[in-house]
Nucleic acid binder design. Structure first.
Lengths: 137, 137
DNA sequence: CACCGATACCTGAGTGAGTCAAGTAATCTC
DNA sequence: GAGATTACTTGACTCACTCAGGTATCGGTG
């Protein structure tokens, strides 16, 4: 009959909802979709092949092709053929891409606005709880 | 130069990522998109008008029109004209819709698999931390 | 070396989500 | 009762995403 939702489950849902919405707004503020911003952010740690990106983003390789094509058209990433294996294209972020990616991070106010309300002790608590929940296995 | 991401921020990102992915899989398992499952879940608490749904789902009214149309075509929701104001359509979930919505909840293993690892004390801790982070203002 | 299977990526077709602008019908206001 | 407002729909469009099928390259086997 009535919904028997655990209050914690509802809170987590709201938290995730707010997080996603905030990220979407941050991306949109610099003219990107959330998926594009996400891909760009994955590249800030160094170049990736198309295939590696597909694995990391949990999506089809052809989807990566299109995302990268749109970002490349804006000069935010570059496709560099791998000299060792001419089948693979390595995707690297450009200087403009770095600027845009940093702009997204700056516009993404959720961590500072929301997580920033917690004290250092509380942040450590939260970190431990999340680690326990997310631990593999 | 190097990315100076706070470890907690990274954990929260991973948490949200895992949550979203799990919800998407649960919806897909019963043949729905995440957006459709989400709309259906909003209706389990009672009927809503199209406009109310648009506000709650943070999206355009015309998007709601399409989502509801697809769900209606599957017999999961029904559009009922409001007798008091013949402009508004109230959307109510059907018996089949309830069954599907419950199936999504059952397939959505994140709360039980992940949050279920926490002790009752830890769950209360997490609840308080999230409440503080999400508090309005 | 020639062949064959596997791999990495791309293309094309199709669906769904989402937005915006414009349209229709019903209500509200004076 | 005329005109503005509201609630929803429609049409056109972009993007994300998937799948099937195509091309080029690599790797191993004879």
């Amino acid at each position: 009959m009535t919904e028997v939702t655990d209050p914690l489950d509802q809170q987590v849902w709201n938290f995730v909802y707010a997080y996603d919405a905030a990220y979407g707004r941050a991306a949109q503020a610099v003219g990107l979709s959330a998926a594009q911003a996400c891909l760009l952010e994955h590249l800030t740690g160094g170049g990736r092949s198309m295939g590696e990106l597909a694995v990391e983003l949990l999506c089809d390789a052809s989807n990566v092709t299109q995302l990268v094509s749109r970002l490349e058209a804006r000069g935010l990433v570059a496709r560099v053929p791998d000299p060792a294996d001419r089948r693979v294209k390595r995707v690297s972020i450009t200087a403009a891409g770095h600027r845009v990616s940093h702009a997204v991070r700056r516009a993404f106010d959720f961590p500072s606005e929301r997580l920033g309300r917690l004290t250092e002790h509380e942040r450590r608590q939260l970190s431990e709880l999340l680690a326990k929940a997310l631990a593999p296995g």
